[in-house]
Amino acid sequence: MAGYEVPRKFPTTVVGSYPKIPPAMDLIKKRRSGDLTEEEFRKLIKEPISEAVKDQIEAGIDIISDGEQSREDMVVYFAERVQGYRPGDWVRIFDNVYFRKPIIVGELRWIREMIVEDWIYATSISMGRPVKGIITGPYTMMEWSFDLKYGDRRELIIELAKIIRKEIDELVARGARYIQVDEPALSTRPWREEAELLKEALDVIFKGLDAKRIVHICYGRLEKIIPYILDYPVDQFDLELKNSNFRLLPYLKEYGYDKELGYGVVDVHSLQIETVEEIKGYIDMLMKMDFIAPEKVYVDPDCGLKRLPRSVAKAKMKNLAEAAKLARREW
């Protein structure tokens, strides 16, 4: 990426989602109700994307995202754009909050680009910073959808993987160099068979791909799943660590972890803003464990920042970037 050099040590990044910036939610609702066409939506959503990109640049993040301003939800967004899905009914996530769990009713097929346009736009205003191409993974799409068509999880996950690969190919053809597949559902079922199922799908997604291959996993029994995923065909695991009090680190060391690490150092469920000193301390702690080089550590939040107020999200990113700067001088 011309004009911006990603630091060699402790580059900073984000997991992807950012608080919805008005009028993003209104636009999503209007697009769904038919008050806006997809074309009109794409045009108008650029303003929130531009604000999300601006915040990340001002905070000092090196590898940014489009803030996922177009996405109501990490599963529904894609289900609405893949043939074979139909909208689902409301299923509760917590309290009185719901999502419309989509239903697979036909053969799944890629029919159009889903995230490419937002990525292109974010890249055009990123002042040279690389923009991650971020897509929900096949395991999470499968687990968080109802299946009335396939009835065979292996067949289904491979079909989803092919669709994701097609989208990633479109991104890479446009110049994307960082591809992240989000798999939050994996850690909820930390068993070997489940990990092997995803590995097969990731082989489809990443085989021969000319870009950095990242898988994001969060919230669950990560320490139980780690032994089964170390041979995944990826360059980097991006992991939630702060929320679970970094309990995963000794396991990574014990298992001889040798990939890059997306090092989650700020809690995205807490309004408390971690100080620069705290975050620097987390980086120091990792370095003192002496199993990974600074060049392989990407400092980022635990997960997407979407549930935080914008001011808190930005402050967390800013402190994270400051801490990484300090760490670069020391390590």
């Binding site: 299923v91 917590f94 909820t188 469920h269």
Partner: peptide, 14 residues
């Protein structure tokens, strides 16, 4: 307190 995933579901309890 905050939310925690309820076993292997996409559902969270407080």
């Amino acid at each position: 307190d905050g939310l925690l995933r309820y076993f292997d579901n996409n559902f969270f309890y407080r």
